[in-house]
């Protein structure tokens, strides 16, 4: 990622999006109107909205990383994840609701990558809200056609002998990629392993961090 020269960065290092200090837009006005009307009519409450936003903010890729690290260290869990990932992850407290979760495993011979060409379906309960690129025209259009070129843009180059399998998330399934456990991590704890699991490695656009990376034990 290029270095960002903005002066005002959020804690995550991204620029804040225009909000309170920019002129009120037509669509922001509509959000306020719909929200107020729904509250006045008793359809929803302000507390429910606040609570929903808290849930949204609490969902980060750390959830998915915990699932991956457990799959790397607990063969029974790994089997349960392959059998029914919705049930296996719900037991860890990550309820996917009415959707179905499918975990797809990377191996030396197979690399999985997830896209939604029709909209932007994403396993929010495990990874949080999707990044902008996941919703972009370029990612949605090209990933099913030229996944290797797309991966190269993310800095990932795989040998021709590794099959790439693109998962187009077209219905009520959600996918999480279980990346291959990095070499050189024998004996590592689940918590230490989870630090190696990046968001992109669980979408398939990245690989886990190397145990030698400077921030591997951050």
């Amino acid at each position: 990622m290029p270095h960002d020269h903005h002066d005002h960065l959020s804690p995550s290092g991204h620029p804040f999006r225009a909000d309170d200090d920019h002129p009120l837009s037509y669509w922001q006005t509509m959000e306020i109107a719909v929200r107020e009307l729904l509250i006045e009519k008793g359809v929803i409450t302000a507390a429910e909205i606040a609570s929903q936003i808290d849930v949204m903010d609490s969902r980060t890729p750390a959830n998915g990383a915990a699932v991956v690290a457990r799959a790397w260290t607990d063969p029974d869990f790994r089997a349960a994840l392959q059998h029914d990932a919705s049930v296996a992850t719900a037991e860890m407290g990550f309820d996917i609701g009415p959707m179905k979760l499918i975990a797809v495993e990377n191996t030396a011979d197979l690399h999985n990558i997830v896209v939604c060409t029709l909209c932007s379906c994403y396993p929010r309960n495990l990874l949080g809200l999707p990044p902008d690129w996941y919703k972009s025209r370029a990612y949605r259009s090209r990933t099913v056609r030229e996944p290797r070129r797309v991966l190269a843009e993310f800095g990932v180059t795989l040998p021709e002998t590794t099959q790439i399998r693109v998962h187009d998330s077209t219905a009520d399934m959600r996918y999480i990629v279980i990346p291959a456990r990095p070499d050189g991590t024998d004996g590592w704890s689940k918590d230490d392993l989870a630090h190696l699991v990046t968001r992109d490695s669980m979408v398939g656009t990245g690989l886990p961090k190397s145990p030698d990376a400077p921030d591997a034990l951050a």
Partner: peptide, 16 residues
């Protein structure tokens, strides 16, 4: 899916 234009013919796509 892509015929002769396929990037790597043996790569796969799964969809529901």
């Amino acid at each position: 899916v892509w015929g002769a234009a396929a990037e790597t013919p043996t790569d796969t796509i799964e969809a529901e």
